[in-house]
Each structure stands twice: as C-alpha cells, then as structure tokens.
Design a protein around this nucleic acid. Structure first.
Length: 889
RNA sequence: GCCCGAGUGGCGGAAUUGGUAGACGCGCAGGACUUAAAAUCCUGUUGCCUGUAAGGGCAGUAUCGGUUCGAUUCCGAUCUCGGGCACCA
C-alpha cells in the first residue's frame, strides 16, 4: 500500500477532532505543576478569497512549537479565532449584496475548514469571533472603562474618573465639560483623515495603506471620537525594553512614537491690532539656536492668526488659510516641494536679544505637532532656510562645525569679543587668517550652506563659544530663570482616531441628549447590538449608515426617561483585536471578559507570530489597551506579548508578490489535494528561515512529497502494505544510535533557540533517512524515535506510521526524545592542514587529539611536506579538533 | 533625504565562536530497472586552467580596501535590492 495522504490526513483530523486531542482543560482541571506555554497566531481576517499559502507559514511554525511543547510536558494554550469587523468584510458584503454578518459567516466557515485541513492543533473550543455580540459586548465594556477613566499625571496611570479631582467652584456645566476633557475616550473636533471613496475617516496609522491602494485621503475638520494614547507615549516607549521583539519592530514603534527633547519658548507679540501683549509658544529641539531665530511661522490653523494679522495683510492671509484647508496631507507634503507662505504684518520679540522678528504663516508648519508654531532658524534648519531664501528673510549663522572651533571661537575668545563675528571687528580679525571660515559664514548667510549638526555657538551672547550640548543646557536654565520657557518633551504620536462612519463595527455605548450633551450607557445595558438592515452602504456624507435607522437611533435614557439618540459612529477594525488574546483564556465567561486568576496563569503570551505589517497598528493599539486594563486592575501584566516573531512573506514562483492580477497566486487547497498537508507544512518550513521572504516552488514541494514517500517505504512494503521484513525488534545498533542522537540534538536545539529556522531541522531528518537507507536492517525503535522528531512537522503522516508499528495513538502524549552526547558526538574528526592559510591536506583523527600530535600529523603529511620543502617555518598554529596552519617563508 | 535589514552555485538555502565555503533540497546531466514511459535507485553537478587518467593548479560568498597565521563571519568606504519613515521644528 502506498502513502495515501488524502485518506491518512482525513482519518487523523477526524480522530483529533473526535478525541479533542488538543483541548486545553479549564484552569481548575489543569496540572499546575507543569509549566505553561501560550502560543499565539495573529488573529486572521477571514476574507472572501480564503487562505493563501502565506497564512499557513506562520501557523505551521506555531503548530510545531505547540506540539513540541506539549511533548516536553508543558500546558499549552494554542487558540484560533476571527477578526471580522471593519472595511474588508463590509466591502465584500456590499459586492455580494448580502449583510456583512452573512458574509462573515461564509468566510469564517471556509477559513476554518482550510485551517483544519492543515492539521493545526488548535483548541477549537476556544474559538472566538470579534463580531459575535457575546464578544463585542466586552469590547464595548472596555470602551466604557476607557471612557470612564482619566490619566493621573503624577502616577502616570489610568484611574477611574470617579477619582478625578474636580474643582469645586465650577458650575455644573463646567464640571461636565471638565470631566469630559479628562476622559481617555473623548470627542474632539479637529482636522481628520477623510477618505471619500470609503466614506469614512481613518486613523493616522491607517493612512499609508489606503493611499497605497489608490484611495484619496483629505484633511477635514470633523467631530470624532479619539482615545488618548498620547498619554501613554512614554510608557509605550520605555516598556519596549522589557519585551523580546525583533529590533525592527521596536525601531518602528520608537519612530512612530517619535519622542524628542527640547524646550518650549515664549515669544511676545507686537502687533498694531492688539493692545495687550499676546504670547506665541514654540517647541524647539535646539534652544541653543535662539539667537539665530529671525522670523516665526505659524500653522495656517493657528488660533492667534486672526488676532494678530494687520488689516493690510488680512486679505492675503485669509486666502492662504482657505487654500491650505482644502489641501490634502499629500498635497501639503510630498507633492508641493516649493514652500509657500504669507506675512501677517505682525512682529514678535525674540526673548534673547529683544529683536523684532516678522511673523509668517505657512503650511509647512503642522498644527498638530508641538504648539503649531515655530521659531525659524534658517541658518541651521533646512526647511527654514528654504523658506528664508524664497522670501528673502535674514539668515544669521549661530552654530559652527567642530572643524572651525579653533579658528573661530578660540581666537575671538582671546580678543574678548566672541559675539561679534558677523559685523565689525570679528570679521576683520578673521580676514586673511582663515578664508575658509569666512567663506563658510558667508555661505550660511547667503543660504548656500545649512549646518544642522551640533557644533559650537557663535553670535549667541551668553552661550557663544559653548558646545551645543552645553549651550542647550545653559539656554534652558536661562529661559526657566526668566520665565520665558522651559525644558519640554514632544511626541509625534497623536491621539488615536477611534470612530468610523460605517455600519460594520461595534456601536459605541453612548447616547446623546437633545441639548448636545451625551452620556455613556450602564454596563448592564450592554451589548448595544448592531441592527440588521438592508442598506448599510456608507452614506458618504460623513454620517454613519446607522444614522438613517430611526428605530435604532431613537431610544430612551434609562435613568431619566428622556429621549436620546444613540451614537451612530462605530469602532474601528482594530478595537476587537486589541484584547482577543485575553478572551481565549476564558472564552465562555459571561461575568467578565477574562477571569483574573486565569489571566495570571496564562498571560503573558510566550510566543506571538504574525506579519510585520502590524508592527505599529495592531501591536501599538493592543499594548495601549492592555496598559489601561492593567492600570485599572483587570489584568496582571504590563505588557501582553513577551516574544514576538515576524514571519516573512511567501512570493509567487516568479519571485514577486502574489496577486490575482499577476496570476501567480498559489491556492493551498490545491497543494493539499496534490501533495498533502504534511508535505506542505514541511516544505514551507524547509524553504528557509521563517523570517525570510522567499518564493514558492511547485517543484520544491514535489521533493518534499518524495521525502515522505521515502520514509514510508523505509517502513512499509509498498506491495503488501505490511511492515518491511528488515525492520527488527532488536535494539538499535551503535551506527543507528549515532545517526539518531545527532538528529535529536540538532532538532531540539533548532526548536529551542527561538530562531525559527526549521529548514536545518528538516535537512537533518533527510540526512538521517538517507543514512538509514544504507543499513541492512533497521531497528523499530530507531524508526519510532525518528517519527517522534518528525511528528510536530508532519503529524498526520507520523500518527499513521506510529499506529502501523503497533503503537496506541495519539503521539501527542509521547515524550520528546532525549539525546546522549556520547552518540551525538563524532569520535573521528577531520582536521585540515594548511600552509600559509591555504588548505592543502586533511586527516581523520580521534576527537580531542592533543595539539602536539596534530602538529606531528601535519608535519608528517607528504602533501604538506611538499609545500614547506626548502622554506623557513615561521609559526605553527594548532586549533584542537579543527586545523593546523603552518606559516612559512 | 533619514532609519532598519539583506546581497553566497542555474534556484531555495547551509556553514558553532574568525578555522574544510556550497550541508539539505530543487533543477540539470549521465547511468540502472522497464518493450516503453512513469515511479524508484545509483553517480555527477561553483567557475576557469591543466592532465589519457588518478590527480594538480588558480580564482571565488555584491565591489574596493583594512585587521589577522587564517575572513562568508570583524572594521571602513562604495554599489544594488527589500522594508519603514518622510516638512515632526
């Protein structure tokens, strides 16, 4: 009987299902003396197209680890579920003209079948679906927790809003507003990323992906829900140190959070339109360049603009603001290389030298970063220089590179007049002495050179002559002493835009009163379910389709009996996946999202595998939610995922990304039908390290199927289907033990080291099989041990042979084999002999032959003798168990 | 422009820590079995030069240079590709 993958895989999948082989018992039934291991795959989004070959790659890796860890005696949690709210599911449903709920059911069914056909060892009793109301009830519950919390600046953590100190003297309305302004979930009216094609707003993190798909994204002021993730910027940054994640992902998150240290500086405004003096605050990372600030620029959205603009400039300014507001982000950045701007007619006073400097507006200053205003130091900032050159604004060099330190600073310090290099004596003094330095200063003044690095201050009064670091420190002190500014830290990270104007998402547990106020629902009123409707297409007006369903929107406030309208925005796709890993731990609990004791046992996740595309989106959001839950005491750990691993992409056979339009998509169903799930699993692991991007190969998987057939025929007689006659019950011979123990050692190391390089494990198994074929007879014990090694990789195949050899299923209960170094090591080792570093000869010697003998062997070697004949031996290097190198002249 | 990561045969990829470059697989070539094919098994497979042959020589891990007895591995510069960020003051 030949190896029949279709029949065998079906048989064992049914067996595992029926016997619940991979069920993880509830906490009170578990043997707690064993260590735990939580292996998690990133929650898949079931699409209409089904799986592609990229999905099983990561899933196979986690499956290997799961099966291995169970054999090693761990309690393993290895669950699977579905992330199904959001745009793709909704777009799919629109295309098919069905309700998304129906569409999701279809896709999930298909995905589940496909995953099962891969023989993955999930505990299917813990399956979750983010669109199930029993699930999203808790997503809404968590939103309430976020909404009903504020961030305590002293303790740097979230606390219940009931603990917030509200000033007594405020009126009721002011109190309401004050509390709302402190909540971690809040409504804000600000420019957001509006995507007209999708009819919804997008989070900053989502914009690049949609632009890549060819959608447009424009800035548009809208009232939206946001989550105050910025309060957690510092913790999200710091705690990256405590997790074992790929450096690239840490780097990505670090850049996204974008911490920068600097100072806030206050500039007084001098304007004809104002009687009192107003102040403009700016953020700068280089307070040492304050003496070089020759003008200011405000973002077009800056609040002070209407107040300070002079009548003469009003028209032009208003026009500019109008034009800027209509530009998309893309237009404001990439497409427009030329700087634009307008003069307000107003001036500010540079606090360090009392100089009057003009105030401009320009869209190169972003309203959402820092204070929305900058001081311009054109000599030392490329953007400022570009602007200054275009509008003919003054440029003063205030920092010089290290190489001019001596010619510049030292010399002038001796003369006691460090700050007058530009005019008068300073320049005179330099003439003839250092033309190069003089030319450098001229280039800066003329806008030809821009020096943005650190160096030494010049033309800067009390900080002239200081190195940048010292200059910054001294300036910061000066600012603080004079009440003109202070040290400050800024982050690029913005608050998370949390509402979408679409149907297919979690409704907010919020209701609005007629007077414009709103309140959250009580926990007992959850879940707020999505109404089943016919038309759920995006209205495109900026309003959710839910707004049109009056019988859903209009309801009554439980507490007051007043008529209220439900919030009609829905939550973004990421909401459900922010906490799913907690639900797996306690999926049926209807009292709480996850029992705290169970959380304490299973969390944190020991291994988390998924694609790199989630580096900032999901992984940042999930960490943020987890920290809030931690602060409020619902979970026991600060970070959810201890180890993260990114699997690489699988490309088409042509070496480019798989896509329908290219026609290079490989369907796993076909592969499993033709070669079997075991061959596919093995091949995906054999293609290369898990993290690498690598092309698919149909011929390659044929080779893997050949390998399994070779193993099969090693044991089974093809014609009779019986165990082959040369398989004996004798103990393995020494030769057999040698090939076995080497393989056990290699494979155990490969799995344990966490590099996810299973290609070498499989190579080792192939070597073992090749060696076994050379034996006259084979011990049954050897084959059984080999099957245990192969089992995590090709489980159906191994279960079948295991059973055929007379053993009881399942192999899952067998312990992982141990190796003995006495057999894993080679007794004989090949040592190479080199002359002048060039390998000339080699010899087999016993392991650990001492250096003296090795040297003697080399000197006795006729080939070596030939190469050193008639030459002087300068040096002999001997490395035990490796080589001898003779240096001659 | 800035920040990561990677460049090894025809291809995917191996090479503890600086110590035999190319494990294992694919492909290809030759052979065995077969009436034939498929399947299977065996042999060979970095390039160039040399030899009837066994063999021998030289070059070779993107390029150039450095450290070293010895470099795919360490250091410096350059090139190419992939990923991320991009007026963040």
């Amino acid at each position: 009987m030949k190896y029949d993958h279709i029949q065998i895989e079906k048989k064992w999948q049914e067996y595992w299902d029926k016997n619940k082989t991979f069920k993880t018992p509830d906490l009170n039934e578990i043997d707690k003396s064993k260590p735990k291991y939580y292996v998690l795959d990133m929650l898949p989004y079931p699409s209409g197209d089904g799986l592609h070959v990229g999905h099983p790659e990561g899933y196979t890796a986690t499956d290997i680890i799961s099966r291995y860890k169970r054999m090693k005696g761990f309690n393993v949690l290895h669950p699977m579920g579905w992330d199904a709210f959001g745009l793709p599911a909704e777009q799919y449903a629109i295309k098919k003209e069905i309700n998304p709920k129906i569409g999701v059911e279809e896709c999930v069914k298909r995905f589940r079948e496909q995953l099962k056909s891969l023989g993955l060892s999930y505990d299917w009793d813990r399956e979750i679906n983010t669109t199930d109301e029993k699930y999203y009830k808790w997503t809404q519950w968590m939103f309430l927790k976020v909404y009903n919390s504020y961030f305590d600046e002293k303790e740097k953590k979230a606390k219940p809003i009931s603990e917030l100190h509200v000033p007594e003297e405020l009126s009721e309305k002011e109190k309401y507003e004050y509390i709302n302004s402190q909540r971690l979930a809040f409504i804000s009216e600000s420019p957001v990323n509006w995507c007209p094609e999708l009819g919804t707003v997008l989070a900053n993190e989502e914009v690049p992906e949609q632009l890549e798909k060819g959608f447009t994204v424009v800035r548009r002021p809208m009232k939206q829900w946001k989550l105050r993730i910025t309060k957690y910027a510092q913790r999200l940054l710091e705690d990256l140190d405590s997790v074992n994640w790929p450096l690239s992902v840490k780097k990505l998150q670090t850049n996204w959070i974008g911490r920068s240290e600097g100072a806030i500086v206050k500039f007084k405004v001098k304007s004809k339109t104002l009687n009192d003096e107003r102040e403009i605050e700016v953020f700068t990372t280089r307070p040492d360049t304050l003496f070089g600030a020759t003008y200011m620029v405000l973002a077009p959205e800056h609040k002070l603009i209407p107040e300070i603009t002079t009548d003469a400039c009003k028209d032009k300014i208003e026009k500019y603001i109008e034009a800027a507001s209509r530009k998309s982000d893309l237009e404001r950045t990439e497409l427009v290389k030329d700087k634009t701007g307008e003069f307000t007619g107003a001036y500010a006073i540079n606090p360090v030298n009392r100089k009057e400097i003009p105030i401009w507006i320009s869209d190169y200053v972003l309203t959402s970063y820092g204070t929305g205003a900058i001081m311009s130091v054109p000599g030392h900032d490329e953007r400022d220089m570009e602007f200054a050159t275009k509008f003919k604004l003054e440029i003063i060099p205030v920092v010089i590179p290290e190489k001019y330190k001596d010619t510049g600073i030292m010399k002038l310090k001796e003369e006691g007049s460090p700050e007058i290099i530009i005019a008068g004596k300073g320049v005179e003094a330099l003439h003839g002495e250092s033309k190069e330095f003089h030319d450098y200063l001229e280039d800066v003044k003329n806008g030809k050179t821009c020096f943005t690095d650190e160096g030494y201050s010049i033309n800067s009064g009390f900080i002239s002559g200081l190195q940048t670091g010292e200059a910054i420190a001294k300036m910061n002190n000066w600012l603080e002493e004079n009440g003109l500014g202070k040290k400050s830290i800024n982050y690029k990270l913005r608050d998370w835009l949390f509402s979408r104007q679409r149907y297919w998402g979690e409704p907010f547990p919020i209701v609005h009163f007629d007077d414009g106020t709103f309140k959250s629902l009580d926990e007992s009123e959850l879940p707020v379910t999505l109404p089943m409707v016919k038309s759920y297409k995006a209205s495109g007006t900026g309003e959710s389709p839910l707004a049109a369903i009056s019988e859903w929107v209009n309801t009554t406030d439980k507490a007051t009996g007043k008529p209220v309208k439900r919030e009609t925005n829905t939550m973004p796709q990421w909401a459900g996946s922010c906490w799913y890993y907690l639900r797996y731990i306690d999926p049926l609990n209807d009292r709480i999202f996850c029992d705290k004791e169970k959380d304490n046992y299973w969390m944190p996740v020991d291994l988390y595998i998924g694609g790199a595309e989630h580096a900032v989106l999901h992984l940042l959001y999930a960490r943020f939610w987890h920290k809030i839950l931690y602060d409020l005491g619902y979970v026991n750990h600060n970070e959810p995922f201890t180890v993260l691993f990114n699997q690489g992409m699988i490309l088409g056979e042509d070496g480019v990304k798989m896509s329908k339009s290219r026609g290079n998509v490989i369907n796993p169903d076909d592969v499993i039908r033709d070669y079997g799930a075991d061959s596919m699993r093995l091949f995906e692991m054999f293609m290369g390290p898990l993290e690498a991007t690598k092309p698919w190969s149909t011929e390659g998987i044929g080779g893997m199927s050949r390998f399994l057939n070779r193993v099969w025929r090693l044991v089974i007689d093809d014609r009779t289907g019986e165990i082959k006659s040369n398989v004996t019950n004798e103990k393995p011979s020494e030769a057999e033990l040698r090939i076995l123990h080497k393989a056990i050692k290699k494979i155990t190391f490969d799995i344990e080291d966490g590099d996810m390089k299973f290609n070498t494990s499989i190579a080792q198994m192939m070597i073992m099989v090749n060696d076994a074929y050379k034996l006259e007879k084979i011990s049954k014990e050897l084959i059984e041990k080999f099957l245990l090694l192969l089992y995590p990789f090709a489980p159906h195949f191994c279960e079948e042979l295991w059973e055929k050899l007379g053993n009881k299923p399942s192999m899952q209960n067998q312990p992982w084999p141990e190796w003995d170094d006495a057999y894993a090591k080679n007794d004989l080792i090949t040592v190479t002999f080199s002359v002048n570093g060039k390998m000339r000869s080699k010899k087999e010697v016993e392991l650990d032959t001492d250096e003296k003998n090795l040297e003697q062997y080399a000197m006795d070697d006729p080939i070596i003798l030939k190469h050193i004949l008639g030459k002087d031996i300068i040096k002999i290097i001997v490395v035990k168990n490796r080589m001898v190198n003779i240096v001659v002249k």
